[in-house]
Simulated assay, not measured.
Amino acid sequence: MAAGRTPRRVVMIRVVVADDDPLVGAHLRTILASAGDIEVVDTVADGAAAVEAAIRHRPDLVLMDLRMPGVNGLVATDQIAALNPAPVVVVLTTFTADRYVAAALRAGASGYVLKTTPPREFADLIRTAAAGHTILPPGAARVLLPAAPSVTLPNGLSERDREILTGLGQGLTNAQLAARLHLTEATIKGYVSRVLTRLGCTNRTEAALLAQRAGLVKYG
């Protein structure tokens, strides 16, 4: 290091892990701790404890298993999403074809991650979600909502609105949308709010699923 140069401060992502399997909780704590920029501030075993931990620690993100005894992860996700400020909630799941996963996304979760995800990819997904992305793998709408018909978008959507919706479906942040469309982030924020209102969506994740069902996002 050059003399007099101040080392760059690593901004830590503070995470609460909620899973009733102690082995899973310990495994996730080990994976995330090894990332260097992710700190697990608490590991809990049920939804009620997850809500309490979110209030007590004010984490950046909560990793939420859905099938837990007592208060399940779906109820906890809904309660955490109502906090102000609310941390990002990412669903932990073994099976993507799970009606609880779809319900959690509608309740405000920012996406889901499989428990079998390789460690390096797992940490990257946490960083992605904490940065404001929606974590929805290609084809998620088909897996989570297999019985849902394709969607026809309202005629009132402008070409710009469709560009914004496509970006949401791809999990882009406001900053990434601004760079793609050569607009300011403030302008993008206004467009996103307008698109959500016109589509009757309550959050970006719901809009992202809608974009996939409407065929705006091509499946890989």
Rank of each mutant, 00 (worst) to 15 (best):
A141H: 06
L66C: 00
L181R: 08
Y191C: 00
V10F: 03
I31S: 09
M1S: 13
A53I: 10
D19R: 12
T173P: 08
K218R: 09
A86L: 05
G4P: 05
L61A: 07
A131C: 07
S110C: 08
D78F: 09
P7F: 04
A214R: 02
A97W: 00
G169Q: 03
N72C: 04
R58C: 07
T173E: 13
G215A: 06
D20I: 03
A208T: 08
R8S: 08
A175N: 12
V143P: 00
G73Y: 07
T93E: 12
A129Y: 06
R8E: 13
Q176A: 14
S34Y: 05
L145W: 08
T30Y: 11
A129G: 07
L136D: 07
I126D: 07
I55R: 15
N84E: 09
L216Y: 10
G108F: 11
A186G: 08
P85C: 02
H27Q: 15
L165W: 11
D21V: 14
T93K: 11
G111W: 04
A107E: 08
R8Y: 01
V88P: 04
L209F: 13
Q79R: 15
A131K: 09
L83M: 09
L183W: 10
G190Q: 08
S110A: 15
D37W: 13
G132A: 15
E159Q: 12
L105S: 04
V217S: 02
G108W: 07
L153C: 11
E206K: 09
V101W: 04
D65W: 03
T94F: 00
A140S: 15
G220V: 09
A214I: 01
E39L: 14
A102M: 05
E163Q: 11
G171W: 10
V195S: 04
V41E: 08
T152E: 12
V24Y: 00
V11Y: 03
T43N: 09
T77F: 11
V75R: 06
A81Q: 04
Q176K: 11
V24P: 00
G108A: 05
S193R: 09
R58F: 01
V113N: 07
N203Y: 00
